[in-house]
């Protein structure tokens, strides 16, 4: 066990956990931020995607000890009122079916738009390739990203 102070969604949070604990479980079990989802536990499905600084990471593969002083942003902190252009586009295009993977999808897309505000279709696919959607909403996801960007 060790003490950590992590900056999550703009707030400093202190906690005492095993340094090997993945950020995913710190968010979900300790900080009760459950918008970030568990899907595979090995960085294969993308449901656990959050931002470390401006970079999308798989929080299930990222130990809390490696976070340091970089700010963490989760789906709950992407915008104050759910009004990030991607969140609005997701609602507008009625993207979700079951909805389980969508927070991770949005976080991957948000990181893409931060580094490349005008991605072409192959750049969108490249950035989103790590996020599985079992319901098959990929076309709407891509359409929402294109239009959030427009």
């Amino acid at each position: 066990m060790a003490e950590f102070v992590v900056k999550v969604n703009g707030r400093n949070r202190s906690l005492e956990v095993d340094p090997a604990t993945p950020l995913l479980w710190v968010l979900r079990d300790h900080l009760k931020l459950v918008g970030t989802k568990y899907g595979c536990g090995m960085g294969q499905c993308g449901t656990c995607t959050v931002h470390l600084g401006d970079t999308a990471i798989r929080s299930c593969q990222f130990p809390i000890s490696a976070v340091g002083d970089q700010p963490v942003t989760t789906i709950e902190g992407l915008s104050e009122e759910g009004t990030h252009p991607l969140q609005k586009a997701w609602i507008e295009h009625d993207v979700a079916q079951c909805g389980y993977c969508q927070a991770g999808q949005i976080m991957s897309a948000a990181a893409l738009l931060k580094r490349n505000p005008n991605p072409d279709d192959s750049q969108i696919e490249g950035a989103m390739e790590g996020n599985l959607c079992r319901c098959g909403t990929y076309l709407r996801i891509k359409e929402a990203i294109r239009n959030a960007n427009a």
Partner: peptide, 21 residues
């Protein structure tokens, strides 16, 4: 008509069984 849970889904609200606490 849009998914009645659409906003909750994109803002990460605890909707799913695994989110129960």
């Amino acid at each position: 008509k849009k998914n009645v849970d659409g906003k909750d889904i994109v803002t990460g609200k605890p909707l799913f069984g695994v989110d129960v606490d």
